[in-house]
């Protein structure tokens, strides 16, 4: 169990590239934090600094109040699950899982007991004597999990552990990892670029962009009150609709004087509307032109234009629509406003 604290943590690679700008956040004991962001935004770099695999350029990293900037990875009481699992190819599953314990001077009988326990938890018992090359991707993933779980560390670190699995297995492992973490109560940092993983697994999400934190918040906060247009368009599938509008006489306007709701201020503004906050309604005051219907089984996505700007609407499977014009309503209080220049929420 552990609390983690990052103070002005910064990473500049030897080539001068600043991969992580000074970053601050705290993680509470037992919390599951997901770092999410597009490729190259510095997620892995940040995680690897916490693991001790990458030098910290500036700032301070503490685990349970102890500064660990210069502590060896093996002495930080962490366990990490890598994207490609990083299993030892020449060791059996049993040895892979037990290797970390062996080097921590655990008695052989105790190692065996703990390996058995971990294997049982992860359904690996019958594979203990196999080499990693004789396992499927999903089984390897479990071994990597076993290697982390067996040591009962203060902190789990995951770097996109599910990205090499097929969609079905990914879904299943997502639930398993989450429930395992719940059960063990180990503080965790989980890196992913998949916003669905982030939404479903996290207690708290940290959205990174270009080496900078865009927003920290619970999945609900991130989804309903994105701090910037970046977060708005990154989180959610399909993403939030962002349309050009303006503030005029206490109203939010788009297109040729279509009022969407009330808001103070004047001048141009970016208007954000979640696709599911729009309903088709014959009495609707807005005209939405449907160009394309995307059939997804449980629901449909209608891609088209609202006031001449690209727009997507999410409707239930019972709503039958074809291409053409449809009257829509926007749910009250569902409109988000962002600054046109900075993209920050207003």
């Amino acid at each position: 169990m552990a609390q983690i604290s990052l103070q002005n943590l910064r990473k500049i690679y030897p080539n001068g590239f600043e991969a992580v700008q000074p970053t601050n956040f705290d993680i509470a004991d037992g919390e599951f934090v997901v770092l999410v962001g597009p490729s190259g935004c510095g997620k892995s770099t940040l995680l690897r600094m916490v693991a001790g695999l990458e030098d910290i350029t500036e700032g301070s990293l503490s685990i349970n109040g102890r500064q660990v900037n210069n502590v060896d990875p093996a002495d930080r009481d962490i366990a990490m699950v890598f994207q490609n699992y990083a299993l030892y190819p020449h060791m059996t599953v049993r040895k892979n899982i037990g290797y970390g314990l062996k080097n921590r001077k655990t008695a052989p009988a105790e190692i065996e007991a703990k390996v058995q326990e971990a294997a049982k938890m992860l359904n690996l018992v019958e594979y203990l004597d196999r080499k990693p090359s004789q396992l499927s991707g999903g089984q390897r993933q479990r071994v990597a999990m076993g290697r982390a779980v067996v040591r009962d560390p203060a902190l789990f670190l995951f770097d996109e552990p599910l990205s090499n699995l097929d969609a079905k297995l990914r879904h299943q492992m997502r639930i398993e990892i989450k429930s395992l973490q719940r059960r063990l109560g180990v503080t965790s940092i989980y890196v992913t670029h998949d916003q669905v993983e982030a939404m479903t697994m996290a207690d708290r999400i940290i959205v990174l962009n270009g080496g900078q934190i865009e927003q920290i918040g619970t999945p609900a906060e991130i989804y309903h009150a994105p701090a910037s247009t970046f977060v708005a368009s990154f989180m959610g599938a399909p993403p939030m609709n962002l349309v050009e509008g303006r503030l005029d006489t206490g109203q939010v306007m788009i297109g040729d004087g279509i009022a969407l709701g009330n808001a103070e201020g004047t001048g141009p503004v970016t208007v954000g509307i979640r696709p599911e906050d729009v309903e088709l309604n014959d009495q609707g005051s807005l005209m939405f032109t449907v160009d394309l219907v995307e059939e997804l089984g449980a629901h449909r996505l209608l891609h088209g234009r609202l006031a001449g700007q690209p727009f997507t609407v999410h409707v239930g499977k019972e709503v039958v629509v074809g291409a053409g014009d449809a009257a829509v309503n926007i749910k009250p209080d569902s409109i988000r406003l962002f600054d046109v220049e900075t993209g920050a929420a207003r």
């Binding site: 060896d72 093996a74 002495d75 962490i78 890598f82 030892y88 290797y99 080097n103 290697r147």
Partner: peptide, 22 residues
């Protein structure tokens, strides 16, 4: 693979041990 060595870095603090084991 780099990650295999990094995994060993977390599992074993001794550089000599890592060399002979991995």
């Amino acid at each position: 693979p780099k990650s295999v060595r990094e995994a060993a870095l977390i599992d074993n603090r001794s550089a000599v041990g890592r060399f002979w084991d991995v």
